[in-house]
Design a protein around this nucleic acid. Sequence first.
DNA 1: TGTCAAGGCCAT
DNA 2: ATGGCCTTGACA
Length: 386
Amino acid sequence: MEVGCAGGLEELCPVCGDRVSGYHYGLLTCESCKGFFKRTVQNNKSYACVENQRCRVDKTQRRRCPFCRFQKCLYVGMRLEAVRSDRMRGGRNRFGPLYKRDRAMKQQRRALIQARFPPLTPTAPQGGPPSAGGFPCPPPSDRSPPAAGLLLDPHTELVLTVPGVSRLVLGGAAPPLERGGFSRMFSGVEQLLCALVGWARTSIFFRQLKVGDQMRLLQGCWCELLVQDVVSRLLLQGRGGGSLDLLPGPEVELSDMVSLAGPALVSLTQRGAELLDSLSFLEVDPQEFTCIKLLILFNPDVRDLEDPGFVAGVQQQVAGVLRESPLRPGSPQDPGRFPRLLRGLSELRGVSRQVEEVLCCRQLRGEVPGNSLLSEMLQAGGAAGV
DNA sequence: TGTCAAGGCCAT
DNA sequence: ATGGCCTTGACA
Ligand SMILES: [Zn+2]
Ligand SMILES: [Zn+2]
């Protein structure tokens, strides 16, 4: 458990809460989680959880369930790529600059905080906000414009470029499925998933949840977020140009697709096309897409939430913004628009279920690498019965 | 040349 | 299998 060294950083390991010993595989962690992550990835170990993937991982219980420990490692952002397959020692990797920036950021923030509050600052993020009433910044009193501004986080406009995902998820399968096709898509999905987790964690409401609830929400909606992200990117990029060239997939004939990928992907492709059609007709704008993303994330129906009331509260607020937001400055509010958007959302959920099914099949065929975020998400979803 | 994250070692 | 401590080595 680490011999105590005075002074040093007062930072805690995001996985188990033990003392941090430096940057390891992408972020500050303790020595034991560093070793655990290394062993797991190097030896390609896979664990099973005898509970429901919800075990507490802290300094005293971290050895009890390696599955949940590793799941948390991935969740907090430890990077598989930082484990060297050639086992080369020493030197620096491509995360060096990231560590440097992170250090600078922390120091800057520390200085700022100390300047403001000389003696105080125990750095309290929040315990558990009660329910509906406890929103810190925006009392729902104000009218729509400021509320919208507070709800939308700055990462909204982040555009992720993930080659291959849009075509494979919504546009059917690329022909060379057997060699490289899926693994290319997998890596795209993995990156996107990682980015989506990062996006969620920038949300101020999301950060007020306990980590357990954060994970439960993401395990419940990762695939919907994935689909939504791809859809919104296609629509926002495609507007202005010819619409939706990507859709049937320029390279693959429908008949080829049936023989190559089976009917499941074809029906998925068609549903995806329908979804894109209806949303493109609605001309959903980026702000609305962000609201939809938040509605997807804050789903109070997810099982076993510790604080479903808070999640429901956020959901209602976001829905309110979406319902009342003044759309284009010129056009009047259309009272029928909000229901149509919700209808689109439920279509999206249907597509998501099919995508998840396809990915799940891939996993059963052993095509999804273990030790991946995608694999963890699929396992959690399957175990929960969704 | 010092730094410090990667991998290795080995008592527990 | 775990985790505290050791060695390595690209980069500044
Ligand atoms: Zn730890
Ligand atoms: Zn567990």
